[in-house]
């Protein structure tokens, strides 16, 4: 597992941990049933507070990426690829709706919106 934290980035640490674990899970680097370090050990290794790792793990569990077995630890769950994709699609649709609404308020035409979409897509890796 690879977690590299950027303290100056302004992104909350727990979120960075969360996203990086998610990425590892989706890429297959963290296979199903892999045992993750305990919340406290992880906090010690990363030199962050226990609450930070707790928060990251809680969110990951809520979002369905990991599962806590009492007395044993946290395991990576089998990722249902389709489910994840559907979730992301829903989020994209919501974000798109917001963007279009804002764009209309700003007075953009449909052509402007398409142009903006291409421009934005190009800047995000």
């Amino acid at each position: 597992m690879r977690i590299v934290l950027a303290y100056q980035s302004g992104v909350p640490i727990y979120e960075q941990i969360k996203e990086q674990i998610k990425a590892s899970v989706l890429s297959g680097e963290l296979p199903e049933n892999e045992l993750l370090p305990s919340i406290r050990q992880f906090a010690r290794d990363l030199k962050v507070s226990v609450i930070t790792t707790t928060r990251a793990y809680n969110d990951l569990e809520l979002e369905g990426y990991i599962q806590t077995v009492p007395g044993k630890g946290c395991y990576v769950k089998r990722i249902n690829g389709d489910l994840i994709k559907a979730k992301h699609l829903a989020e994209t649709k919501t974000a798109m709706a917001t963007a279009v609404r804002q764009g209309k308020l700003a007075g953009l035409t449909t052509a402007d919106l398409h142009h903006l979409l291409d421009e934005t897509e190009g800047t995000i890796k």
């Binding site: 305990s38 406290r40 050990q41 906090a43 010690r44 030199k47 226990v50």
Partner: peptide, 12 residues
Amino acid sequence: MLDVFRDYLVEE
């Protein structure tokens, strides 16, 4: 010292 504290806290 902070490392010592972190080690201490690994127990629940």
